[in-house]
């Protein structure tokens, strides 16, 4: 066992996969220096042919990724900020996501679009989003949102080995997290939620960094509310069965997600719960998301993105207190 930080767990996963399969390579803006550290040290190990710095054009980088994947490679495309997926939207949403369907399943696009996501540092509207609902809404893409180092490593390895395009959004606020990582290899399959904390009063489905806020809230509410915290880990595919099973037990549920509220991740999960567990609900499905607003920068950010007090309150309300 060794203790790794979040970013370090990601770079280790990529390194292991690059060593395992020489079709895996990394491409992106300044991936050799890696300002967010997730590809740090890779160029020293694998050389600049497999850790390629690209010009500042997300569309071109994503296009090269799609082309390479169609030609038989397994590229890991670093979009830097997840927000930049909008610049690369045509390649990611129209091409990567749909080629497999367009070519009757004969040509796959196995690749990873990784990007650092979320708020917490006041980076402003163009650098603080988690474009999760947008990815979920486009069929053909998988979506991974790791909430801790252990999951980040296991999920990144699964993402690289997956034969579909996978968006891998890791959270800025998780960067300083440290966790014990086993020495032996492990993979976390996509589409498998984890119950991060068992409870009986209310189910809390939280995504990405919100998982950590929910766990802290649950700790503070101990003795008052017994919260069951579920981290879906991947939103596509979504492990709805685990959520439904929990809701049938607790009869109450709140979904906590950092993407903006309208037509969001929480709305989709809530609807699936209502369709499958209506007769088990003792209260309306509730949600706590970022407000329907651009993610404000600097000191204003906390008025838009859910903070711990609201998470606590949301869980209490859902529990019927």
């Amino acid at each position: 066992m060794k203790e790794l930080m979040y970013w370090n767990a990601i770079s280790e996963a990529i390194a292991e996969e690059m060593a395992r399969d020489d079709k895996v390579f990394v491409i992106g803006e300044n991936v050799q220096e890696s300002p967010f550290l997730a590809t740090k040290g890779l160029v020293q190990k694998f050389g600049s042919d497999r850790v390629m710095d690209a010009p500042l054009s997300e569309l071109a980088i994503a296009g090269a990724t799609v082309g390479a994947a169609m030609a038989g490679y397994r590229p890991v495309c670093d979009l830097t900020f997840a927000d930049f997926i909008y610049c690369a939207a045509d390649e990611v949403l129209m091409k990567a996501a749909q080629q497999y369907f367009i070519h009757n399943g004969e040509v796959g696009v196995p690749c990873v679009f990784m990007g650092v996501a979320g708020g917490g540092f006041g980076n402003g509207p163009e650098h603080s989003r988690i474009p999760a609902a947008m990815v979920m809404h486009n069929p053909g893409l998988k979506l991974v949102l790791p909430s801790n180092p252990y999951d980040a490593k296991g999920l990144m390895k699964a993402a690289i080995r997956d034969n579909n395009p996978v968006c891998f959004f890791f959270h800025k606020k998780c960067m300083p997290m440290k966790q014990e990582i086993p020495d032996e290899e492990y993979i976390i399959p996509l589409g498998k939620a984890e119950i991060k904390r068992a409870g009986t009063d209310v189910t809390v489905v939280a995504t990405s960094y919100m998982v950590n806020l929910a766990l802290e809230a649950a700790k503070q509410l101990e003795g008052k509310v017994s919260s069951e915290i579920i981290d879906p880990r991947t939103l596509v595919p979504l492990d709805i069965d685990t959520i439904i099973e929990s809701v049938k037990k607790t009869n109450r549920v709140v979904i906590i997600d950092e993407d903006t509220e309208c037509c969001g991740v929480a709305a989709e999960i809530a609807q699936q719960i209502i369709e499958r567990a209506f007769d088990y609900l003792d209260a309306p499905v509730s949600r706590l998301c970022a407000a329907n607003s651009p993610i404000a920068g600097a000191a204003m950010e906390k008025y838009v993105i859910p903070q711990l007090p609201q998470v606590i309150k949301a869980i209490e309300t859902a529990a019927g207190l």
Partner: peptide, 16 residues
């Protein structure tokens, strides 16, 4: 619930 929010001094937009 109300007290918690007040004590931490954090804004409490009515998100839920």
């Amino acid at each position: 619930a109300v007290t918690t929010a007040i004590e931490t001094g954090e804004p409490t937009p009515p998100l839920v």
